[in-house]
């Protein structure tokens, strides 16, 4: 590797994607500086991975969040956490990742550097090596500053065969913490509604949560409720199992700030994204054990059993008042209310 140079440009230009000197300097001064590891070789076209034993799992995800930086995270850490979480809820321990970077001409280099730094520390904290990558620059107006795409490779751990099809009547639904934080924090960060707040996104690795329950018998299924939120995962469970999902509203953890913002803007936190939570379905006998496991962890202190699987064929919410209503599948993008 060339020795680290100082960054001499303030903004990304099209030349940084031309394959020539500017691009080499960009890679050297930012990407290699923060992401380097023994496997990542910026001169090679392909990386060679050490032999791995066990069931290899792979997952890929794209990241387009706006704004690029938000309270509690940024697109860089999100691109690591997002893909690693998909591997984690499938029962794998993530090992390697590749990253594709699409930069819009004009992006501030200092912002890019912050984001790559954040990506690097998220990867490091979770023992993930970035082993391959690519950078493209698109003309101004053809992107929203920065898009990232990551692919992760992991090795399956534990004895479980997690499968949504294993879900049965009587199983319990457990969530690892409050829902809707990420979606609400992003809404506030956009400041579109003239509202501000101190709410942090929950964006984080869920690996400690998924690993903690690795040995829990009767664990059927895990998922991280990202786009479409908790309600969307419930519909996935309902549709795949053909059974009913019955939730207790008063048991679902929601922060007061999240509820207040949602009430004002007409959103339902059950449909808003989380980026650091896990929903698990576990048989009735082991639900309390799984809950106890999570509650011992810092990120699982507010975990709760929020519902059960029943014979119905709908997602039904028992309201705090004791009434019942449908929790509908998300229809379209939520629009601002008229009154």
């Amino acid at each position: 590797m060339t020795e680290t140079k100082d960054i001499t440009w303030a903004h990304i230009s099209l030349a940084h994607g031309n394959g020539g000197r500017y691009m080499r300097e960009l890679i050297e001064t930012i990407f290699s500086r923060y992401l380097s590891n023994p496997v990542l070789n910026t001169q090679a076209d392909a990386a060679s991975l050490p032999d791995m034993e066990g069931n290899i799992m792979i997952s890929t995800d794209g990241f387009t969040v706006q704004p690029l930086e938000f309270p509690g995270g940024d697109i860089g850490s999100l691109s690591i956490h997002g893909t690693l979480n998909d591997l984690a809820v499938a029962g794998a321990i993530p090992k390697y990742m590749t990253v594709n970077v699409f930069i819009e001409e004009g992006l501030e280099v200092s912002q890019l550097e912050r984001i790559v730094q954040s990506m690097a520390s998220a990867a490091k904290e979770n023992n993930i090596a970035i082993v391959a990558g690519d950078t493209k620059v698109v003309p101004k107006g053809q992107g929203s500053g920065l898009y990232l795409a990551t692919t992760g490779i992991g090795i399956k751990s534990g004895q479980h065969t997690l499968n949504i099809k294993n879900i049965n009547i009587g199983d319990r639904i457990v969530v690892s913490g409050p829902v809707g934080d990420h979606g609400t924090a992003i809404m506030l960060a956009r400041e579109e509604f003239g509202m501000h707040g101190a709410l942090q996104s929950d964006a984080a690795s869920v690996l400690p949560l998924t690993q903690a329950v690795d040995s829990i018998a009767g664990l059927k299924f895990m998922r991280d409720p990202t786009r479409g939120g908790l309600a969307t995962v419930m519909h996935e469970i309902q549709q795949a199992s053909g059974l009913g999902v019955y939730l207790y509203e008063e048991q679902i953890p929601i922060r007061d700030e999240v509820q207040t913002v949602c009430d004002m803007l007409g959103y339902d936190p059950l449909y808003l994204a989380c980026e650091g939570r896990v929903v698990a379905v576990v048989d009735d006998n082991n639900a309390e054990a799984l809950l106890a496991c999570w509650q011992q962890l810092p990120q699982g202190q507010e975990a709760a059993i929020i519902g059960k699987i029943n014979q119905g064929n709908q997602v039904v919410l028992r309201t705090t008042l004791g009434g019942e209503r449908l929790l509908d599948e998300l229809e379209d993008d939520p629009l601002p209310r008229i009154c």
Binding site: R318, T319, L321, G322, G323, R325
Partner: peptide, 9 residues
């Protein structure tokens, strides 16, 4: 009314 399921109660 519909959200809190009042009619059912």
């Amino acid at each position: 009314i519909s959200q809190s399921g009042i009619r059912t109660l």
